[in-house]
């Protein structure tokens, strides 16, 4: 079920990028996020400045409630900062409107969550095809080929026609990763992707991320509270009370 490294496929698409000198994919410039609609304003992210380069595999660690997830939602453009700038692939997103952010999410960012969030009515393959269908850049045939290829790379060839409830937890999470990669994004963001998985599957997911970063040149940023997992990454940052307190890079 594991995929051999170096297999030709979608994961290689970014390899050429990886060989060039490092360029920033995500830049945070004094980013702060405050929830104001609460009775008392809550500061989720406190003045974080950070740069993550192409091909980096970085872990965001910290105790629960420290603001790790809030930070990853900001990086993934699901949320907007109260102040500061987030620059994605050279584009200042603080000036981007909603439609532009949606477009960026569709084309440059892939999301993986703790829960697989697969659409239960659709097969694994259909789930992987969703972002491609939304983008509409490929022909139906090309989408199908790419979807099957992605599933194949994650050892899910047999799962293509299965519905999510027919898959194991590890398989579902890998389908979700394949879906996140469907439009060949630059950046893969993951929020506790192994939170619901056993150690074997967790390792599998992180080694997949590692490969994506090394071989395909993807930038992978993953929130994890598991030090085991964090050690598999190239760089770890630690968040405490919304502030960046340690950065191994």
């Amino acid at each position: 079920m594991s995929a051999e490294p170096g297999k030709p496929g979608a994961m290689d698409a970014g390899r050429a990028r990886g060989q060039r000198p490092a360029r920033p994919v995500v830049e945070l410039d004094h980013v702060t996020r405050i929830l104001t609609d609460e009775p008392q304003p809550v500061t989720l992210v406190r003045d974080i400045t950070l740069r993550v380069d192409e091909g980096e595999f970085m872990a965001i660690t910290g105790p629960s409630g420290s603001g790790k997830s809030s930070l990853i939602y900001l990086i993934g453009l699901l949320d907007s900062p109260t102040s500061g700038r987030i620059i994605l692939d050279g584009i200042d997103t603080s000036r981007a409107d909603k439609a532009r952010k949606e477009r960026l999410r569709l084309t440059r960012i892939g999301f993986v969550f703790q829960f697989h969030f697969l659409l239960p009515e659709f097969t694994a393959l259909e789930n992987v095809l969703l972002p491609m269908r939304k983008l509409g850049a490929l022909s139906d045939r090309a989408m199908l080929a790419r979807g099957l290829d992605l599933l194949g790379q994650f050892g899910l060839s047999d799962a293509a026609a299965k519905k999510p409830h027919q898959l194991s937890g590890g398989e579902r999470q890998r389908v979700a990763i394949a879906r996140a990669l469907a439009n060949d994004p630059l950046l893969l963001v993951a929020d506790e992707p192994t939170g619901n998985l056993d150690s074997k599957n967790s390792e599998l997911v992180f080694s997949l991320f590692d490969r994506l970063a090394r071989e395909a040149g993807k930038t992978v940023i993953s929130v994890t509270h598991d030090p085991e997992m964090a050690r598999m990454t190239h760089r770890q940052i630690r968040i405490l009370d919304g502030a960046l307190v340690a950065d191994s890079g």
Binding site: L78, K98, E102, L106, F111, F117, P131, K134
Partner: peptide, 16 residues
């Protein structure tokens, strides 16, 4: 609601 959240995170717009 979960589906809607994931569709939005993928890049589906409010209009979609």
């Amino acid at each position: 609601r979960h589906d809607i959240a994931i569709l939005k995170s993928i890049g589906f717009s409010e209009r979609d």
